[in-house]
Design a protein around this nucleic acid. Sequence first.
DNA 1: CAGCATCCCCCGGGATACTG
DNA 2: CAGTATCCCGGGGGATGCTG
Lengths: 113, 113
Amino acid sequence: MLSYKGKEYVCHLDWGFELIRGKWKAVILCHLSEGTKRFLELQRITGSVSQKVLNEQLKQLEEDGFISKTVYPEVPPRVEYNLTEKGNEIVPALKIIENWSLKHFSTLKKGSE
Amino acid sequence: MLSYKGKEYVCHLDWGFELIRGKWKAVILCHLSEGTKRFLELQRITGSVSQKVLNEQLKQLEEDGFISKTVYPEVPPRVEYNLTEKGNEIVPALKIIENWSLKHFSTLKKGSE
DNA sequence: CAGCATCCCCCGGGATACTG
DNA sequence: CAGTATCCCGGGGGATGCTG
C-alpha cells in the first residue's frame, strides 16, 4: 500500500498510472515528445480544450515531474512546455498504446456498431 | 477525429488510452498477464473494491476485447478471467509504467511532503 | 462465490468571462 | 497569448444489501 498526496494506492502501477490518467495527459506527453510546444499549440492539439482544463493538466504534469515550463517575459507572453527526463521515460509506454490503437481501432469500431 | 461508442477522440492515442483509463483497469490487466484469475482474487488485488465497480471494469475490458471470461456452471459458481491476445499486446506498456513508478516513487513522494 | 439492484457523492472536466 | 476566477454538470466510482 502506497500513499501519495493524501491518497492510497494498492501498488506502484496503480500510483504511476494515476499520474497520467487525466483526460489529456497522455496526448500532451506524446506530443511534447516531438519537441517544445507552446500553450496555444497544445490547445489546438487537444481540440480546443478550455484554458482552465489544459492548465490544470499541465500544472499537474509539472508537479509530478513529467514536464517543465518556461516563461518568457515578453509581450505578448510566451510560454513553452518541454518533457523532462522523467517524462521522456514514460513516452515509450504511450507509443505502445498508440500503436495498439492504430492496429485495433477499425476492428473494435466495427464490432461496436 | 475518431468516433467510438458515441464519443469523439482527437487521435488514436486519445481513443486507446480511454479504453484503459478506468480506475482499476491497468492493475487488472497487469495481474491477468501473470495468468488466469478468479473474481475474488481480483477483488483482493484491487484492495476490496465493491463487486459493482469491479464488474463494471471487467465488463468494459471484455467488451473492448482485452479480456475473456469463462463461467463454470458449478456450485458455488466459478468465473475465470484471462487476457486475450489483444489484451496481452498492451501489457508491455503497463510494465513500462510500473517500472517508471518503481524508479521514481520515492523521489516524487519526498518532493511532495 | 459471483453478481445483480439501489442509492449517493464527489470531483474531473467543461463553458464563459475577465485580466496583464 | 497565457492565465486566472466562477459556476456547473455528468457520471465514474463507491457503499450496502439481496439473490441463486
